Amino acid sequence: MKVRFAGRDPLRDVTAYRSTEPANTAANEPGRFDLSSNELVLPPLPPLPTVLSVIEDGLSRLARYPDPTARTITEEIAKHLHVSPDAVAVGPGSAGVLQQILLALCGVGDEVIYAWPGFDAYPLLVAISGATSVHVPLTSTGDHDLDEIRARVGPRTRVILLCSPHNPTGVVIDRHRLDSFLRSLPGDVLTVLDEAYVEFDRGENPPGTPDVLSRHRNIVVLRTFSKAYGLAGLRIGYAAGPERIMVTVRKAGLPFGVTHIAEQAAILSLHSEGELRGRLDTVTVSRDELTAGLRWSGLPVLPSRANFVWLPLAAAADSFAQDLAEAGIRVRPYPGYGVRISVGAPEAQESLLRSLGRGVPTIWV
């Protein structure tokens, strides 16, 4: 008798995260640059200098299990956001915490609404929970169409995912629009505000600050130490929101999901505001230089508040990325939509702009 094993229906139409892409080795190859993953690759930025010694000291504890509750970093994050520790959940990166949220709140027959194009892990994480993704196109300016998202809310809607600054466009959600949107939602629909790149936003009062959490009881803010803090390889992120929701979210977490090294590095990172401010200034300058150079090359570039820029190239996105790959520069295409280019080290950006300065870009505009 043949025994057949089949995956659940929601997983059949999605692929493993970036399973078809080459390994991230470009940074180690002379003359090749990886500007596709939004890592903080501006030397000597990752990680914060004061954090390195903690990482080295933690190597002696690799044979020991970490604290399963990650209590210390949970309490530090709570102080940072001026909320109760019971309102915080931590996990292996913001994607790991988002998975906890979706597993805690969603199941088969439920719907999760989010803008598209968006973070390419969203469809997989929604499918793992058993729920169905509902895509709402971005506006022509790379922003969330909050009116259309609200119109798509129905009896099966459990979660709405918003991202600000948005990945991949770098556009932020206006605070007043966010407040109005949250007030318009039914009481049984939760909004998750993904702020993985919020530290790069140089505007005032970015959404997700503690006063937003205090004004609304239907929102969870999601953040990470992977981007601005340069700890992508340690995998640690967190969420903050209503205690009645976060208690369930913590139950869905992977046991020992946050290592001791990651916890200690994150704690030190929260106390290194001066170093963080300096690197954010460096990223802002590099982002502005990259934006100006791309526009000088004749390419459309949206104003970005993150550590990447977005080129709305539509059908030409794939060919643009392929031509750059042949020149030794890796960027992230979103077929049919555009291309995201991470802010990189000076030599990487100079190589990119030199490649585009050879007259090639005119075929994509």
Score class of each variant (00 low, 15 high):
residue 289 E to L: 13
residue 285 V to S: 11
residue 270 L to A: 02
residue 266 A to N: 04
residue 320 F to W: 10
residue 284 T to D: 06
residue 277 R to A: 08
residue 349 Q to D: 11
residue 290 L to T: 08
residue 308 F to R: 02
residue 343 V to S: 13
residue 305 R to A: 15
residue 321 A to K: 06
residue 298 G to P: 09
residue 311 L to Y: 03
residue 302 L to N: 00
residue 313 L to S: 07
residue 335 P to K: 12
residue 317 A to P: 02
residue 361 P to S: 07
residue 362 T to K: 07
residue 259 T to D: 00
residue 268 L to C: 08
residue 272 S to V: 01
residue 311 L to F: 09
residue 262 A to P: 00
residue 286 S to R: 07
residue 278 G to Y: 02
residue 300 P to Q: 14
residue 317 A to N: 03
residue 282 T to P: 08
residue 305 R to C: 15
residue 267 I to F: 01
residue 324 L to A: 15
residue 358 R to S: 09
residue 333 P to W: 13
residue 306 A to Q: 04
residue 307 N to G: 12
residue 304 S to F: 00
residue 291 T to V: 14
residue 285 V to H: 08
residue 316 A to I: 06
residue 285 V to K: 11
residue 307 N to Q: 14
residue 264 Q to M: 11
residue 290 L to D: 05
residue 269 S to W: 02
residue 324 L to V: 15
residue 336 G to D: 11
residue 305 R to G: 07
residue 342 S to G: 13
residue 314 A to W: 06
residue 294 L to R: 04
residue 267 I to Y: 02
residue 277 R to L: 05
residue 327 A to S: 12
residue 294 L to F: 11
residue 338 G to W: 03
residue 320 F to H: 09
residue 331 V to L: 11
residue 347 E to G: 12
residue 293 G to N: 08
residue 324 L to C: 14
residue 280 L to K: 13
residue 260 H to T: 06
residue 308 F to W: 08
residue 324 L to W: 13
residue 280 L to V: 12
residue 336 G to W: 05
residue 272 S to F: 00
residue 297 S to F: 06
residue 273 E to Y: 01
residue 272 S to E: 01
residue 357 G to F: 04
residue 329 I to C: 15
residue 344 G to S: 12
residue 271 H to R: 12
residue 295 R to I: 09
residue 328 G to M: 15
residue 311 L to P: 01
residue 340 R to C: 15
residue 287 R to Q: 03
residue 272 S to A: 13
residue 335 P to H: 12
residue 314 A to V: 08
residue 337 Y to S: 15
residue 261 I to D: 05
residue 272 S to T: 03
residue 281 D to T: 10
residue 306 A to M: 05
residue 296 W to S: 14
residue 266 A to V: 03
residue 334 Y to F: 10
residue 267 I to G: 00
residue 318 D to C: 09
residue 346 P to G: 13
residue 279 R to N: 08
residue 349 Q to R: 14
